[in-house]
Design a protein around this nucleic acid. Structure first.
Lengths: 373, 373
DNA sequence: CTGTTAGCGCTTTCAA
DNA sequence: TTGAAAGCGCTAACAG
């Protein structure tokens, strides 16, 4: 299986007939006479010597490793962020350690304790739930930590977050512009940071648009997954007839497509759909999903850079960055350009007009309205 | 930002009034008198002492870290494998280092050199392309390496692979059973290990089924991505009229759905579809995609365990495992089972049967067919 | 049972 | 310029 034994400074020094200090200098490009450089290089090559990372770390007090902790590793948006962080820190000469944690604050706290073992020089984390204790622990940490996601008040922690309130606002505004009035909301758990923020954004956006709040038009999935989304959307459609839905992430939006089309309704004609996170899934979906881009990649990149900055300057002032959202418009909200305005032939327009049922019978009506699930 | 300075064995020893050896023993649960245990524990608690991982590593010659190198980190199947490996090694007390590499063998070779720096105890890798040099380097590696994916001949490297030839066979057989005869194949690059294997499987399966080879019915996407898939499928449909397509992975299959529906054709009625890898995407797609499960999670798990085994027994015999594929049947190949009841009256049932539109004209039909792209 | 001591492999004064 | 030597924080002989 394996081969040549591991070679060390000492071995190289012996072979080159110099001191270990000289070998070290040559390996690090420090000044040395040509003669020594040459002999050391030769010996090192022959022995296939490469400096040991652990020994270096011990000596330097740095590991060149950065840890990443995300709660919901199954969500494509975190995968995308992970890749971006990996890219940035690798370029800076760091290795990335994946510290999968559960979604509970306790898990993250365990991780913080563990971090003190010094296996990494810093941490990027994106907690789904933030408790006072977690915040306290982060602040008390000996190692630099950058948090992705909203943090309460004015805690002095390097932080980069999305403006998801504004993000939901963009979604709602867009739908209103498309003539939608009954805008439902499929959220994840509201005891999570994103869940709470997105709900707040939804309610605020309704107010801004002068639309009424309607409890029946809101539903919370058990978590931010596709499966939970199926249940939530089913529940939603069982008790209300929205002309559009804002989903708190793209997975929930995909679930919405499934449920909607399974009921014989169409996206976007009958129900328009906006997702959030603007992950690859939004593009892959059929129809593709208009999605609020919360700048996940940019957040990831910024977070990584913030950490690198603090690593080289521990006394730099704390930075709290907010990434502005944008809206990527796709098929799920593209209003069908209908030539003649015959409400009966166009359920979306009909609903937009605030009419729940036409006075005259209409062929597809019963089929479409019939509750199926 | 930070807080209490780092505390070491020495600090704890001083505070407890004992030797550092005693502290070490207590921290490691080695025999010690109750009195000492108590005093050390107290001192350690007060100082918030946790043993330093780097120092331990240097002493022990082990890092408790495992590196993972996958070429195509964007592909959901690798993400799934990553999670599984993370799960398994974490449970065994290892940290996982993500070593993203490019798809070229050169990148992987660089990584192997780097591995010799000893930042990890072992490596799990899944190279997209395998050259003789890469194989040689793996064999010459001082550290245990497990390769996920096919390896040439009988090289003595711990290895776990999928039987993708059989996998494609399952797909083709299934389609034939569904009455499909003109089975096209959308592959990725054939200069990759999976690309080559899947092509081989396709040709062989055609032979076994007594179906003719048809060059027009085969196309290779530039890579295994959605985007490349769009192009490839477009090209395919421009020059042939298959009644079904086997796609070399789920991303390509999703691309196929897009292109097919954009042309006003239906999946599965006009063209049935089988993907490969059986990722979450296959379930999320609309219609959901029948997919060959190549045991990615099981492969990942097996690979991780193989590595752990070798870590504790470097002289264990080399193992080469093959994971058998299965087929997960979903909507994209479900033959429309027409119920006695009038399908038009029940859209959900129609959908569940995998039928997007009935054969006979029906009011909403045209709306549904309307291509959105 | 407990303390002393010698390294793990490296970087970095400090002298020469 | 080069070498000798002192540790980084820990574990594991080895004495006592």
């Amino acid at each position: 299986m394996s081969a040549t034994k591991k070679s060390t400074l000492v071995l190289v020094a012996e072979r080159a007939g110099v001191s270990i200090a000289s070998v070290s200098r040559v390996m690090n490009g420090l000044p040395a006479s040509d003669a020594i450089v040459e002999r050391v290089q030769k010996a090192a090559d022959e022995l296939g010597y490469v400096p040991d990372a652990t020994a270096r770390s011990l000596k330097a007090g740095k590991t060149q490793q950065i840890a990443l902790a995300v709660a919901d590793a199954g969500n494509p948006v975190y995968v995308a962020m992970m890749h971006e962080i990996s890219r940035v820190v690798t370029k800076a000469g760091y290795r990335l350690i994946l510290s999968s944690t559960g979604s509970e604050p306790g898990d993250q706290i365990d991780l913080l304790t563990n971090l003190n073992r010094g296996f990494a020089d810093g941490l990027v984390m994106s907690p789904l739930k933030v408790t006072d204790e977690l915040v306290a622990r982060i602040q008390a940490s000996r190692l630099p930590i950058v948090v992705i996601g909203s943090l309460p008040g004015d805690v002095e922690i390097d932080n980069v977050r999305a403006d998801s309130v504004r993000g939901v606002g963009l979604a709602v505004e867009h739908l209103v512009e498309q003539g939608r009035q009954r805008i439902a909301f499929v959220n994840g758990p509201v005891d999570t940071v994103p869940g709470a923020a997105r709900l707040g954004g939804y309610l605020r956006a309704l107010d801004e648009q002068g639309l009424p709040h309607n409890a029946d038009a809101q539903v919370n999935a058990r978590d931010f997954t596709y499966k939970a989304g199926l249940k939530a959307v089913t529940k939603l459609l069982d008790r209300s007839t929205p002309d559009s839905i804002v989903c708190a992430n793209d997975l929930l939006a995909i679930a919405a497509i499934k449920v909607i089309t399974a009921r014989g309704l169409r996206v976007p004609e009958d129900i328009a759909l906006v997702g959030m996170d603007d992950t690859d899934l939004a593009e892959l979906a059929n129809p593709s999903i208009t999605s609020v881009n919360l700048g996940s990649v940019k957040r990831a990149k910024t977070a990584a850079k913030l950490l690198l900055r603090r690593l080289e300057d521990p006394d730099a002032p704390v930075r709290r960055e907010v990434i502005q959202p944008t809206l990527t418009i796709r098929e799920s909200t593209s209003s069908p350009a209908r030539p003649a305005v015959d409400p009966a032939a166009n359920p979306a327009a009909r609903q937009a007009a605030g009419e729940t049922a036409p006075a005259t019978p209409e062929p597809t009506r019963n089929q479409k309205r019939e509750p199926l699930l």
